[in-house]
Design a binder for these strands. Sequence first.
DNA 1: GTGGTCTAGACCACG
DNA 2: GTGGTCTAGACCACC
Lengths: 129, 129, 129, 129
Amino acid sequence: MFFQIDFSNGLPVYQQVVRQVKFAVAGGALQAGELVPSVRELSRELAINPNTVARAFRQLQADGVLESVRGMGLQVAAGAQQQCRDERVKLIRQRIQQVFVEARQSRLAADELRALVDGELAAIEQLEV
Amino acid sequence: MFFQIDFSNGLPVYQQVVRQVKFAVAGGALQAGELVPSVRELSRELAINPNTVARAFRQLQADGVLESVRGMGLQVAAGAQQQCRDERVKLIRQRIQQVFVEARQSRLAADELRALVDGELAAIEQLEV
Amino acid sequence: MFFQIDFSNGLPVYQQVVRQVKFAVAGGALQAGELVPSVRELSRELAINPNTVARAFRQLQADGVLESVRGMGLQVAAGAQQQCRDERVKLIRQRIQQVFVEARQSRLAADELRALVDGELAAIEQLEV
Amino acid sequence: MFFQIDFSNGLPVYQQVVRQVKFAVAGGALQAGELVPSVRELSRELAINPNTVARAFRQLQADGVLESVRGMGLQVAAGAQQQCRDERVKLIRQRIQQVFVEARQSRLAADELRALVDGELAAIEQLEV
DNA sequence: GTGGTCTAGACCACG
DNA sequence: GTGGTCTAGACCACC
């Protein structure tokens, strides 16, 4: 797998796993019906405890992204790709709204905010090129 | 005081207090040399635990925004206003960067992101008018 | 064969096979002395692991429904039909008891329960017509 | 608390806790806004591992029955009572349907089934008196 | 081999 | 005191 865990980041490890699986599904790296790596395998690969991976997978099942196949493992649910895409956009929109509201609460002027955003947007786009 | 605590918001209460004090200083609502309300008074007013207020004030002292005056309480430090203004911009820039990096990690296309941002920016600006 | 496996149903696959064989015997679809399909044939037909079918057949032998015939395979035991009929009624009675006890534990009122049961009983009878 | 765990019952312990909390909320034994016993307290009382209780509470939060109050504990969410009542009826109806469908699949005659159900219903009602 | 459950004990942030 | 996270190791049923 191509996941990566950032332990210094405050975000709980199991949530990082959840997010990265969802992103992989949204991006098509994990196709519907495909078996995801086993709990033990992924835990070995990421050097984290199997229980932590299991918890992430449990969450993903509750979210309808994965489904269990008895004795075989966990597979990506049908329709999960569209769901993950929608969720991704929704999540990012929320985060953006949150920041903007915060900026407004701090009485940052609208043009200052716009300048900040444009600068960072340009920066991130250059990275992608 | 004019602070307001949002318990349903995941943000720790003491950090909400810290932020709001800093914003008040940045915006000039709290002037350098001015005494802030006592721990007990503020805790009563916001209906939160005195320990929580004390913790926020401890943080504000560590950040150099407040300083203790023997027998009087805590006052806004000299030069705190400029510091809070800088911090505010820096904080918001960080948050924006964070969101953009996250969006990039989720492989959201650059133009999709820009569209999202522009939409939300317009929305927040309309609110301000 | 006319069996059907439901993977999304929590019930273990091998138990589904056991149950369906017993129902077939009870209903007369499988007569005493008749040879059941081989493990390999049935596993191919149901698209399940041969080990799973073998386990189901082992269970059915232990229950006295099937018996092995050297070099021939497995046949339905004499007297299995009556046994399967009795077992069927007993099993369903158990399930009903279980549901009712659960309903009682949840403090559902007796008349509410009776109304629920009558409604569903009417529904299932209409389906059969 | 008045909960009771049955270890010999195949049902996972954490699910038993979830169910009993929901039943308590549905029945009004736990009112909205009320704090439920702490993880440690309940785990001591039921003689089970705190993690197991925590897992049940996590599930109850995901189901919208409990909500966390920072540093204080977990309280019953507003509107949880109605939700738990609906869920209870829906759950039992599902179970009843399941049994009836199973009975039909086993080709049990409709009048045999009705006789079975009436007998067990009478039995359970006598217990309640 | 697979996931699922449970225990035990540790550390953290928060009020 | 509270819940939340993580680790470690055990046992189970199922395929």
